[in-house]
Design a protein around this nucleic acid. Structure first.
Lengths: 340, 340
DNA sequence: ATCGGCGACTAGCGCGCGCTAGCTACCACC
DNA sequence: GGTGGTAGCTAGCGCGCGCTAGTCGCCGAT
């Protein structure tokens, strides 16, 4: 092989040279720059050369010159990295892609690194599911990031977040419709998602009030530390027959504790989860849950990011995702599951 | 507020101006450029000014000038986005961070977008768990990415991948030690991870041979389509008492099917999973599994990426992660779980 | 007294791109 | 014939940084 030099990347200058035209013209053609008139012939020749040479604009140079990276960074909480999130991300990614943006996702790790991703990527927008804490906001500001969602300066009550009220309503209504009169809410212990948990719990309490049933206890529950077992004991003693869980993981912990305590599910205790994770279908008994339309949510996220990136107003946006109940054995099973 | 102009980002030139020194000097100080002698006083003044002004180098400019983005892109398969992966990623991320690199992770979505992430990010290295297909490799090459792991030009037999043989060995040995003489392997149906599934199955067959027990069937199994139920029926008929599952999800599907078929687990059928996902502990009965040391694996990934990025040889690297058994109810439970 | 060497620094190019400020040729119109 | 307008193009700056090729002054050795 006579040619062993590293094949230099094709640049716009290369195209200009082969076509016999200036670099500016190449730029105008490839970017369809408005306000520039290019003859049909030149345009075609440039396009052809670009395709033939396999030209790819250097993103670093584009970002430097344009001052925008066209990257959207989504920070995900590190706990619920499950379920329909995949669909959600895929849809958001595609919608952004169509608009010329790229979505980069990172799960927000507790172990802070020296160089957070927003510093390395120079994203145009950083989006989170929950509000960023002050340290993060300061770090982003220092990194020159001005577009942050949710806006750090705006306080949005989290129980008004899309879908929260509706999901809790479906959970509570389902249990009520099955005749349960005394309910409990099983929260997640993880402090990182504390406010979302709180929001769902409040919404459930509100809906219980609407339906005129008692929601006698809200309590954090975990599988590992025995708190689930304890909760089940207490709830039984208090006459609770239906449990609204923050999500499917928590629901599984409650069901597991109940079964191990010799109870029948759903005969003695009915439990409903949230998110319709794969676990919900897999579990024995399978878990009733609530599913939100991930495709819609993904598009919503993309739209939010785009508006922010392009400095268009986001205030008139209102969004209520389609939410529906998925009934399975843990609330409506005909055969109880328990220990033999 | 008199000042409403967007606060321009601080550049190295700003530092140079305030300190009264040239831009080059600033660069030398901040990068600790070898071969440059800078007086202690100047160095201190530059550092101080940088800190005071909150200077952050523009990554786009750095990437453009240096020709390297210091980004490592990790493409994850989109199926097993679960379990210890988080620890793994966190550790890899930290190790890379220490070396001045950033790890960006993307789950490899089936729905191809117009602009794959490696095109938008200009990563120095792209790493995948499995080999990339030819389209992807071509796309990366076109995007100017030369460092791809696993190397597209090198064929590595997947059953030699780190940990595969050892994990299967632990699974089979455990069931053998409990007295099971006829085993089956429950594979995952997902074609995207076909070769990894195949590798684990082969390793299990080999180990069964070593132990002199029969592994009578290898079959893809899923919860949704009834294939798990069918498999359990067939296995029972064939006298199988122990099942080695590809991972915990598959194990859960098998256990679920067994319980629903009126079998006792582990009394009639013992099942062991792989990966020690959260599901394994949560499930009822809880699932025995195999855990690989995610921290080690993460460091290994980081080291691999760094060597590739810095064009250091990777051939002498050999790595066998610590792997150990997690015994739970699905193989060694004292009380069987079943339908009441 | 001269020269080489070295410590401490600076001028300025190049990375690849977007884009402004032109410039030229051509045509329509008075 | 002059004037204005426009289609179609180009020269070249600026983005912020890394880094090479110097420059300058001082000190020790000849």
């Amino acid at each position: 092989m006579p040619e062993s030099a590293p094949p230099r990347r094709v640049t716009a200058a290369d195209i200009a040279r082969t076509v016999g035209v200036s670099r500016a013209t190449v730029g105008f053609v490839l970017n369809n720059t408005p306000g520039q008139t290019i003859s049909e012939g030149t345009r075609a020749r440039v396009m052809e050369a670009a395709a033939r040479l396999g030209y790819r604009p250097n993103k670093a140079a584009t970002a430097l010159a344009g001052g925008r990276s066209r990257i959207v960074l989504l920070m995900l909480p590190d706990w619920p990295a499950d379920f329909s999130v995949r669909t959600y991300l895929e849809e958001a990614s595609r919608a952004l892609d169509e608009a010329g943006y790229s979505l980069v996702t990172q799960t927000h790790s507790a172990a802070r690194v020296a160089r957070p991703l927003w510093e390395a990527l120079n994203p145009d927008v950083v989006i989170g599911w929950a509000r960023f804490d002050d340290d993060d906001v300061a770090s982003m500001r220092a990194a020159g990031i001005t577009r942050i969602v949710p806006r750090p300066d705006v306080q949005v009550p989290l129980d008004e977040a899309p879908g929260v009220a509706e999901g809790a309503r479906l959970q509570v209504d389902h249990l009520c419709d099955l005749g349960h009169r005394r309910l409990a809410f099983a929260a997640a212990a993880d402090p990182r998602i504390g406010d979302l948990v709180q929001a769902r719990a409040s919404a459930a309490e509100r809906q219980a009030g609407v339906r005129g049933v008692d929601l006698v206890d809200v309590r954090a529950v975990a599988h590992a530390d025995g708190s689930a077992a304890e909760a089940v004991r207490d709830w039984r003693a208090a006459g609770v027959t239906g449990v609204v869980a923050y999500n499917d993981d928590v629901a599984a912990a409650v069901v597991g504790a109940a079964v191990r305590a010799g109870l029948r599910v759903p005969g003695d205790l009915a439990v409903i989860g949230h998110d319709d994770s794969p676990l919900a279908a897999l579990f024995v008994p399978s878990l009733s849950s609530v599913r939100m339309d991930a495709v819609q949510a993904g598009r919503f996220l993309a739209e939010l990011a785009l508006r922010e990136a392009e400095d268009r107003p986001i205030s008139p946006m209102r969004y209520e995702p389609e939410t529906h109940l998925v009934v399975r054995e843990s609330t409506a099973g005909e055969t109880d599951v328990g220990i033999l």
